[in-house]
């Protein structure tokens, strides 16, 4: 069984976890200034990369905490897990962080 390293509990079986979709999507500071298309993009449009993807995960059948993970969508390998509000350690992650919002990623 795939093991996922919960930042609070350590390595735990994958069935204890739920995926919460793409991570690091910042809510627009001023939603009223956005067009409907921009707002819809923030709400609904997500990346679907072939490769490294930053995701939110929830250790629902464990400590119940949400955390972030960087996962390779090809190999299903977890490269890093880190608590909410923390930044990932390794180099490649910087590119993920710098494209933290959909709007920035598409600009």
């Amino acid at each position: 069984m795939l093991l996922i390293a919960c930042p609070y509990c350590g390595n735990r079986p994958e069935t204890e976890f739920r995926c919460g979709g793409q991570a690091h999507i910042a809510r627009p500071a001023d939603p009223g200034a956005l067009s409907d298309a921009q707002w819809a993009e923030y709400l609904f449009i997500r990346d679907n990369p072939r490769g490294i993807h930053a995701e939110r995960w929830n250790h629902v059948h464990g400590c119940g905490r949400w955390f972030n993970a960087r996962r390779d969508t090809v190999s299903d390998r977890f490269l890093a897990t880190y608590k909410m509000g923390e930044t990932p350690q390794s180099q490649e992650s910087n590119s993920i962080l710098s494209t933290s919002t959909q709007a920035e990623a598409r600009a």
Binding site: C9, R12, P13, E16, H61, G62, C63, G64
Partner: peptide
Amino acid sequence: ATRTLFGKAE
């Protein structure tokens, strides 16, 4: 002590 799964039950 931990919360976990046993079969389909938490």
